[in-house]
Design a protein around this nucleic acid. Structure first.
Lengths: 245, 245
DNA sequence: GAGTGTGAAAAGTTTCACAGCC
DNA sequence: GGCTGTGAAACTTTTCACACTC
């Protein structure tokens, strides 16, 4: 990238420096490439070009090559990428060589779905603990894991070395739950509650907000409808000609 | 924005032009501001400053003001924004003045959770239909709505004017379901299946990929761990001093 | 005095286009 | 001939800072 002549074996420092420099947007796409590539491995595909992989991942090939260049130069010119090599490098960069135990808090409809979701454990994210505030649920197994009372978050999370907390509680409870997770030492949170969580700087929060997603889609519906209507109605453009392109 | 002198009443064309120009990233945040503001309305707050609203929404105030400026100038200098005015303008821009019927396909754990999720109907997204491939589920009510067989997507979606399709099926089924939704005239899709959907240009897809979210968190855990370790171990920095900041 | 609205600068991201290698 | 890797260009988004209004 910057300097190393020929194929110098990378030092830890170089790998680290490189990881630090990967744009946030590229990280998200690397995860997608990884999933596509895992499918390729299963189909016995051994080599793939940037064009093919890009198509399967829904991006253009220049972007894909740029993204891969952030993690190193592992392709062969004129040929493409070795699927397994790429898989292992992406896994390394994403930190998937270690296991990340997950705790789910809030065992309602969504919590149930998450506890039973096969996509976590199979990808190196074992669900290590479940929590709910309802004492009737305590001890009840969900997806094979017994539910703990929310008051035990600190001890259980520490004991099981939980590194990712998933908040699937009603909005009113989310901030309090978040605070407890943080004081239990959890530094990564995936938040499904429609609330903006306040956390210390060192805690990484990602949110999944269904209503927001819907509203973004709604915006696009509305804009399209406006465009279609406006071109004819408003005297701005006639017979379908858009004046301001 | 560009030209209109004084307080010229906006033409439809201007509103349209403006909507077209709102950056994608700003649209997502507007939805968040809207939620925060709705909470304010309930607490009888009538006026709010950019600083306060930004704090509650987890962004900085310059960004918030810029975002709001895309939809118009509805604040009062020295005072702030009228909460209700802002709510109604954001709703208009996001197209929330019409109802958007939602169909959920795939009534497994997640589908159940979505069908029962109160956040949709309460925000103008009534769940109008449920679909599953399992004939045993057909007719069974989930969250008060009977499940249809997947083969009826086209007719039921057309009849109920579904504008948003939610895919909560296993990955193998997702593309086929998507194709059916599209041929039923659905132009917006929210995809929970870990698959990259191929759709025509005019269809808007948003995806929620839990494994990807986890892996992004994992990346940050790994990077942090590397940094912590590297500073001490690698001869790059000593006694906790970070050389490259 | 307080706080919005916005050009202009800075930072981040995507796309282009082609040299270099197989 | 085909395809990667990457600087440089184009575009998007964020941040700054201050003129302007109440």
């Amino acid at each position: 990238m910057t300097s190393p002549k020929a194929t110098a074996p990378e030092t830890t420092a170089e790998v680290r420096e490189r990881a630090r420099a990967i744009p946030e947007a590229a990280v998200a796409r690397l995860a997608v490439y990884l999933r596509v590539l895992s499918g390729m491995v299963e189909q016995q595909v051994t080599t793939i070009s940037s064009e093919e992989l890009a198509g399967a991942a829904g991006v253009n090939s220049a972007k894909l090559r740029k993204d891969l260049s952030y993690i190193g130069s592992y392709g062969t010119r004129g040929v493409g990428y070795d699927v397994e090599v790429l898989v292992s490098h992406i896994e390394r960069i994403l930190g998937l060589t270690r296991k990340h135990s997950v705790a789910v808090v809030g065992i309602g409809n969504l919590g149930h779905a998450l506890a039973n979701y096969g996509g976590f454990p199979s990808r190196g994210f074992p669900v290590a603990a479940l929590f709910d505030i309802d004492p009737d649920l305590t001890g009840v197994p969900v997806g094979g894991i017994p539910v703990h009372h929310i008051d035990d978050i600190t001890s259980v999370c520490a004991e099981r070395e939980v590194s990712i907390g998933v908040i699937a509680t009603p909005p009113q409870a989310a901030q309090a739950v978040c605070d407890r997770l943080v004081s239990a030492g959890v530094q990564c949170i995936l938040n499904f509650a429609p609330v903006v969580l306040q956390v210390p700087d060192y805690v990484e929060v990602r949110k999944v907000d269904l209503a927001v997603e819907m509203q973004i889609l709604s915006f696009h519906v509305a804009r399209r409808a406006d465009e279609a209507a406006g071109d004819v109605v408003n005297g701005v453009g006639v017979d379908g000609v858009v004046i301001r392109p």
